[in-house]
Amino acid sequence: MFSRAYRAAITVPPLVWVAVFLLLPYALLFCYSFWSVSSSQEIVHSWTLDNYRQLLRVNVYWQTLLRSMWIAARVTIFSLLLGYPLAYYLSFCAGKRKDLLYQLVIIPLWVSYLVRAYAWKTILGSDGVLNTLLQYVHLTSHPLDFLLYSPFAVVLTLTHIYTPFTFLPIYAALEHIPRNLVEASHDLGASPFQTFWRVIFPLSIPGVLAGATFAFVLSLGDFLAPLLLGGPSGIMISNIVVSLFGAAYNWPLGAAISFCMLALVLALLSLSESLEKKWSFR
């Protein structure tokens, strides 16, 4: 159809881009994960599996990884619990208000991540909005300190930030359900409740899987929320990677942890993709 030159002209730039800015750094990082650091803080370019061994041997690394996964899992569940009903309401019940509500869900995505994280800091802090309110109505006599600098604060903030990411694919999936299927279900005697569980929900599963993958993968790799709101008990694996590449100057170990996360995420993505395929019918 198109000339060779034309095809080359449009395919080469993106390939170069991917190679230079994605594959090359990853390859370099992959090499780093098999190198080590000398006592004089220099990278030793000799191959070793020590970094990966250390990851398994030192408790703090794999425990933090597990905790990060647990936090990500909670964020996923909460954002699904918030995002699904919201998407359902918008798609099936909102009527004329649909567009306005949709915009309201999307607008927070335009607000800087940092602003949203700091907003929670002012809400949850010991003299923050929430504590002041609780003391004002005499539900508590002194500020609750578990609100901020805890895994709770991290889960809350990440749920707030990533709910639109679960909402969007679920909303798209619901919007794609032909409305005559819903009518057919009612016509065949199914109540709205039965219709939801037998028709609407099964057909929205690809959206749910996509949304869950977004929320889990994005919050697993998050480091700003735990940095700003997590405190010592809310540290996540990315914070460790950041400090290994920064202050600790142990790039090889940082690279090894990064690669473990990358492998985990790729495994999750391929799992969710195959599940989505299984649940899509068009």
């Binding site: 032909p178 005559n180 299927l181 009518e183 057919a184 279900s185 009612h186 016509d187 065949l188 005697g189 199914a190 109540s191 709205p192 039965q194 037998r198 028709v199 099964p202 057909l203 649940w279 019918f281 068009r282």
Partner: peptide, 30 residues
């Protein structure tokens, strides 16, 4: 869903996630 009336839709509106037999049995199952 409480009317003893059934409809054959213009574009059939078969449930894509159910087999032919499950589609036919839908009303009886609910």
């Amino acid at each position: 869903y409480q009317r003893r009336v059934n409809t054959v839709f213009q574009h059939y509106a078969l449930f894509p996630h159910l087999t032919v037999a499950e589609n036919v049995g839908y009303g009886l199952r609910v």
